[in-house]
Design a binder for these strands. Structure first.
Length: 474
DNA sequence: TCATCTCGCACTTTTGAATGGG
DNA sequence: ACCCATTCAAAAGTGCGAGATG
């Protein structure tokens, strides 16, 4: 499966400072990203992926691993990953299904993980799969280690960003290309809720091997002993592994060849009909769907019901990406001082300080499709029940590597729960392929997304409330 | 009372330093 | 002195269940 980058709408408006023949325009239109282990992700997705989050930080499994093609081999790129809320709800696990439990909590500071190889040449990124193995998730909002902070019982989606930039200083002047894979949507949990997910993880995660055979013997012995002491609990927490019948059933489900034999084109068309979340047998989201009809105007399945295996080019809106600046660098990242080719090529970005960069955070919520200026992010009309004002911050943190200077930076990011994917990703129709670029509604706004460059954010006041941190990846 | 979170356990895998040979 | 392969101990990562927390 691949995510293609169709930037037609984004390049439909003239960008005076960027000649159409610029290398970037070439790369932007050809960059493609695909998800490694996509079958595994789909397997988890069909059960309702859960990711453990702990205070010290927990790795993701399945891990985020991507393939990138279409980069300029000699140009340098920076790869980033972050996690955005899928919707504005908190969930609970009730009788084998996830249900909406209420409104989402205010989002913690949004942190962006910079791949440790960044910046690296396009050839480097393309020669092998890029692993985000060392990304750690935490529920500790005071985390000092640079882990990505999430709320338990909330749903998130990883996003991957490719930025053509010679160094981290020039990122803010560079073009972001954002990719998402709907099958990577997961629910953050502090303890597994769905036993199917537990089993899938044990079966597929090498670190959990100990729980597969030897441990299950010893543990089952221990459990049987404990069951004598607390029989009611032992029964309540009965492992699915013990139930042979259930295990067989699960085996058949898990080993079912997901989308077997689908080529890319077939997947695009068939996945809509065979959308996992609509399959009651596998879907843990059954109840949620009912809720989605009654409660939310933005279905939590919005992404799944899209062509989940289609490709997409998701470009964040201006207020999503522009209002950030690196913080903590030793030199001023002003375009005039920057030596990057991008910055020298596009001096006009500095000449537009009044753009979205300084939009106050409360302006964000007023940025509806009807009223937003051309610089406002493209987003769906906010769902009343999901509205959540939040001026998040993209924290990018880099711990010193032996051969790399230590860099700690923060990036501002405005997003709310209702904006989450819709804002960042652009309109949902963008995920349906090129045909949907006819923009069923508000085509003008869509076209204003254009290219996305870093803009200087005028508001520095809140930065101090977020800790500087190092990132273990470097 | 209940849902959720934290912690320690026993286990496996990964990592990196130490060592030795060419 | 350098490079490479091997070994091995320490660190890191894993799900589980009991107990804590709100």
């Amino acid at each position: 499966m691949q995510h293609s980058c169709d930037l037609k709408p984004n390049f439909s408006i003239p960008v005076p400072t960027l000649p159409p023949t610029a290398p970037e325009s070439y790369s932007q239109t050809n960059v493609r990203m695909s998800l490694e282990d996509s079958n595994l992700w789909k397997a988890f997705h069909e059960c309702g992926t859960e990711m453990i989050i702990t205070k010290p930080g927990r790795r993701m499994f399945p891990q985020c691993k991507i393939n990138v093609t279409g980069l300029i081999p000699y140009a340098k790129y920076i790869l980033l990953m972050d996690l955005v809320p899928v919707d504005g709800f908190r969930y609970k696990w009730n009788k084998d299904k996830w249900e909406v439990a209420g409104k989402a909590e205010p989002q913690p500071p949004c942190r962006t993980y910079i791949h440790s190889d960044s910046p690296a040449a396009g050839s480097h990124w393309m020669k092998q799969p890029i692993s985000f193995l060392k990304v750690k998730l935490t529920n500790n909002t005071l985390d000092q280690h640079g882990h990505i902070i999430l709320h338990s019982m909330h749903r998130y989606q990883p996003r991957f960003h490719i930025v053509q930039a010679d160094d981290l200083f020039s990122v803010r002047w560079s073009v972001f290309q954002t990719f998402t894979f709907p099958e990577t949507i997961f629910t953050a949990v502090t303890a597994y809720q769905n036993s199917k997910i537990t089993k899938l993880k044990i079966d597929n995660n090498p670190f959990a091997k100990g729980f597969r055979e030897q441990r299950t013997n010893t543990v089952s012995r221990q459990r049987s002993l404990r069951a004598h002491v607390r029989p009611e609990k032992a029964q309540k927490r009965q492992s699915p592994l013990k139930d042979e019948e259930e295990e067989e059933q699960m085996q058949s489900e898990f080993q079912r060849p997901f989308y077997e034999g689908y080529n890319q084109e077939e997947v695009v068309s068939k996945s809509k009909d065979a959308c996992p979340v609509k399959d009651e047998r596998f879907s843990p989201w059954g109840c949620e769907q009912e809720h989605s009809n009654n409660v939310r105007t933005e279905s939590p399945h919005s992404s799944e019901t899209r062509d989940i295996y289609n490709t997409e080019q998701l470009v964040p809106g201006p207020t999503s990406y522009h209002p950030y600046r690196f913080h903590g660098f030793g030199k001023s990242p002003s375009p005039s001082s920057s030596t990057s080719s991008q910055s020298s090529r596009r001096p006009s970005f500095n000449s537009r300080p009044s753009d979205v960069a300084t939009v106050p955070e409360q302006d964000n919520k007023n940025c509806s499709l009807d009223t937003m200026p051309s610089s406002c992010p493209v987003s769906l009309a906010p769902a009343p029940n999901t509205h959540q004002d939040y001026t998040g911050m993209l924290n990018m943190a880099l711990a010193p590597a032996p051969n790399k200077p230590g860099v700690i930076s923060h990036i501002y990011n405005h997003y709310g729960a209702e904006q989450s994917l819709t804002q960042w990703n652009g309109p949902p129709h963008s995920q349906y392929g090129s045909s949907s670029f006819s923009a069923p509604h508000h085509p003008s706004e869509y076209s204003t997304q254009s290219m996305h460059h870093g803009y200087h954010h005028g508001n520095m006041a809140d930065w101090s409330q977020y800790p500087l941190f190092s990132y273990s990846c470097w």
